[in-house]
Design a protein around this nucleic acid. Sequence first.
DNA 1: AGTTCTGCTGCAAACGTTTGTAGTCGCATG
DNA 2: CATGCGACTACAAACGTTTGCAGCAGAACT
Lengths: 348, 348
Amino acid sequence: MPATIRDVAKASGVHVSTVSRAFSAPQLVNAETRAHVLAAAEVLGYRPNRAARALITGRTHNIGLIVADIANPFFPPLIKAAESHARGRDYHVFVADTNEDPGVEEELVLALAKQVDGVLLCSPRMSNTQIEQLSREVPLVVVNRPVPGLPAVVMDVAQGARLAVEHLVGLGHREIALLGGPRGSWTNREIRRASTLAARTAGAELVVLGPNAPTEESGSAQAEAVLRAGVSAVLAYNDLMAVGLIDALDHRGVKVPDQISVVGIDDTALSRRTRPMLTTVATPTAAAGRAAVDMLLQHGDDRRTTALVTLQTELVIRDSSGPGPHRTAGPGRRQLPPLDGVASESRE
Amino acid sequence: MPATIRDVAKASGVHVSTVSRAFSAPQLVNAETRAHVLAAAEVLGYRPNRAARALITGRTHNIGLIVADIANPFFPPLIKAAESHARGRDYHVFVADTNEDPGVEEELVLALAKQVDGVLLCSPRMSNTQIEQLSREVPLVVVNRPVPGLPAVVMDVAQGARLAVEHLVGLGHREIALLGGPRGSWTNREIRRASTLAARTAGAELVVLGPNAPTEESGSAQAEAVLRAGVSAVLAYNDLMAVGLIDALDHRGVKVPDQISVVGIDDTALSRRTRPMLTTVATPTAAAGRAAVDMLLQHGDDRRTTALVTLQTELVIRDSSGPGPHRTAGPGRRQLPPLDGVASESRE
DNA sequence: AGTTCTGCTGCAAACGTTTGTAGTCGCATG
DNA sequence: CATGCGACTACAAACGTTTGCAGCAGAACT
């Protein structure tokens, strides 16, 4: 029913190949012939069938973007940046959501494989070997995780975690909890490694709680464990969990940052919206999206490029972190009520 | 480089058509032949090329989903519901973001047209005639707006707005502001119409501020106008704007709901996260996503189906709405400090 | 005048599938 | 024994493009 290149050829009295060239190689066709063709195409409402084109050129001009959870505010900025960056290069981005499920992840890559020129795999939960296998089906750029032999863009979240821990220790905290993220997350391992090291170096103790789903609910659910751990500060895997935790602490009458300091990671839009505003590690998500698109488009064909782009992070100090019980630096201007009496409300 | 159906045919000693049928019409091929073929395909790592298949069958088994802004928390639940619903029917969903730009919107529909079996157009900002034209390129289901002659699923947001206004009037508010949404939004017109009517009926005055971008920033930016309007309650186009407004009011020392009540629309995850928790109109977004997919898949071919599905909304009363200055109902347990003295802080 | 070049266009094969039609074989039926 | 049937498989055309090659003017050299 829709007009094909053949209809246009017939209508303008030239061969189909000329029509084809009129669109995709204008310099090869006489200017007025081209005008004729375009006019005919216009009246017929002709649109090139990209699937057919892809079949022969091998390039779809689409790129796939797979994220763990589209509802996680970490991803939208990345997605939007990738989209507009790609659009500027005449590419379209197809986004898909895996619900944090490695199975769905694999299925989606395979499904996307033949319809896109490459896939941006963000925060994958699969194993490295799985990812390597998939990279034989379609060019892959991994985001938020380095995979040997594959191009990847990561954030220097270890640096961020270190800064966060040092910030807390500087405020006088000696016992810090790390609210871990999801199993299979490289970022999570990285944060854990770096914060453990930073704590030890600074002479503080770090207790790890997790792994946990990277959600607000999961942050709330760990409030109990945090209190039981008797720490005075918490570093959370992401802002979502930090917010969930603050919320649950608030419900229990525990004041942040007066009784417990909480630091998040990601600097999502959320962090400026909460009361108190969240101290957090800013990750350059938009830049990551753009970089990933660039890498994919650059080595479009020669796979197995092993480039690794690392983006810097920084600590954004807001209101959810304050002086700890052991004063060592800075003016200790806050009172620290005892933590007792809180446990009674614990079962709610 | 990747294995084709031809390779599999060669490897298993049968004709390509047999291989094809082994996959897409198992009952037509001998069981052990089929086993042979599948085995060969397995070792070769063969995956059918969906583009080639689509070329001949005319069905891509993909559906497009276009939203105004993926970062708006209203959309993710809709997207996720549509995705998983579609996946259950062996369809994949490609999401794209328009940045609230009608031009990009049209471009995306056109780009998607040949690569999907249909498009879910959510909250479009285009004109009806534009949409009708596009529907000739690809089957369309419109979400959040009725378009004559096209299948659509909408929320009964008029009812929601009415409930919200009645709720506020019931609390004693007589002067209410409506924080309008974006130009071109059907939902916005609907809210405006219904709330104006409801206010008049209940003997209250409604002042409309807008149109505005449906963002948090835009909500904050209107705080000044809200104060100047001298109202005691505000109904916002969506939760995002409501939150932005509350935030800006808070900065100015204006207490919500003690001095001004604020009601949102959408009941996004945000609304339970704010302090005070937001009174809002719940819209069944997940159900809308599923319904839209169903409609698209149902009348896949016969376009111009004129079905219109309307989903009910309901008012969720939380903490951001309280008694107004004119007590008529309910216990007026809050003090109402004067609004004066606020303007001095206005320029921040 | 002959040769080469340039600018343009047509021809036809190819991309990886699906599917209508026709063919083969063994077997039961009349 | 011819016929028909059922189960299976091969053949080939088609889907809508792109692109290497060849052809053909006319212009520009030698």
